[in-house]
């Protein structure tokens, strides 16, 4: 073995190392949300339960129920789309973070943020296609839904799910939700979960762990 230091080789190795890219975490199981757009009555109990649990002042909203209403009489429609963090398979927020505050759990794929490590650069907020990271102007930090990770670890479901009086919001292994094998009241007989609904950013961007039961006027044909 040569003891000579090959400077060119070292230089090349350093350059190679600098070109290293981020490798996404592949969890053992990926938990995700299911929301029934049609049966949701838009009471926003999930939003309030979330704000209560996370002690959020007016402003940041981890979860948001969007009211979609349209059409021309008599062909009118109304439905709700309910999203918080979608705990994406390949989250866009995670690689942007310069301090490593955002991480994805290897056990269940939950994307969490340790806000004590956040410097408030707001890159994650810009990169997320679903508006999940929320800036809190009170302390200039980013905060987001962590699927009530303490509840999950205690074997319970998140506050938003527990608060849903119509039982149209639920969590479960996303593969089982997708193939219809997950037992939940959020999926009715004959309902087919879809990856995307109208006005939602392309799910191929980050592969979000959420499925919807779409309204007949709210589906996106090509993504179903």
């Amino acid at each position: 073995m040569s003891k000579e230091i090959d400077k060119a080789k070292i230089k090349a190795a350093v350059k190679r190392r600098k070109r290293e890219t981020y490798k996404p975490v592949v969890p053992a199981t990926q938990l995700g949300f299911i929301h029934h757009n049609v049966d949701c009555i838009g009471c926003r109990a999930c939003e309030i339960a979330c704000k209560d649990k996370n002690g959020l002042a007016p402003g940041p909203r981890f979860r948001r129920v969007s009211y979609i209403e349209g059409g021309v009489y008599p062909d009118v429609y109304a439905y709700k789309v309910n999203m918080s963090c979608n705990h994406c398979a390949q989250p866009a927020c995670l690689p942007t973070c310069p301090t490593g505050a955002i991480f994805k759990r290897a056990s269940d794929g939950i994307v969490d943020i340790d806000s004590t490590l956040c410097i408030g650069c707001r890159r994650c907020e810009a990169a997320c296609p679903y508006g999940a990271p929320q800036f809190d102007p009170g302390d200039n930090l980013i905060k987001k839904c962590n699927m009530c990770v303490d509840e999950i670890d205690a074997g319970r479901k998140p506050y938003c799910v527990m608060a849903c009086m119509m039982r149209v919001l639920d969590i479960g292994p996303i593969d089982e939700i997708s193939d219809g094998s997950f037992q939940t009241t959020a999926i009715g007989p004959g309902d087919m979960p879809v990856k995307q609904v109208k006005n939602m950013a392309d799910p191929e961007l980050t592969k979000p762990s959420i499925r919807f039961i779409a309204h007949s006027k709210g589906g996106v044909q090509s993504k179903q």
């Binding site: 600098k18 070109r19 290293e20 890219t21 981020y22 690689p95 942007t96 973070c97 310069p98 301090t99 490593g100 505050a101 340790d114 806000s115 004590t116 490590l117 956040c118 410097i119 408030g120 650069c121 707001r122 302390d139 200039n140 930090l141």
Partner: peptide, 22 residues
């Protein structure tokens, strides 16, 4: 951004993978 996080991570000393590029 803040000069340091609440836990004391200094902004100037913390770089993401893409920030180590030239």
């Amino acid at each position: 951004p803040l000069s340091q996080s609440p836990a004391g991570i200094k902004s100037s000393e913390s770089l993401a993978w893409y920030q180590k590029d030239e």
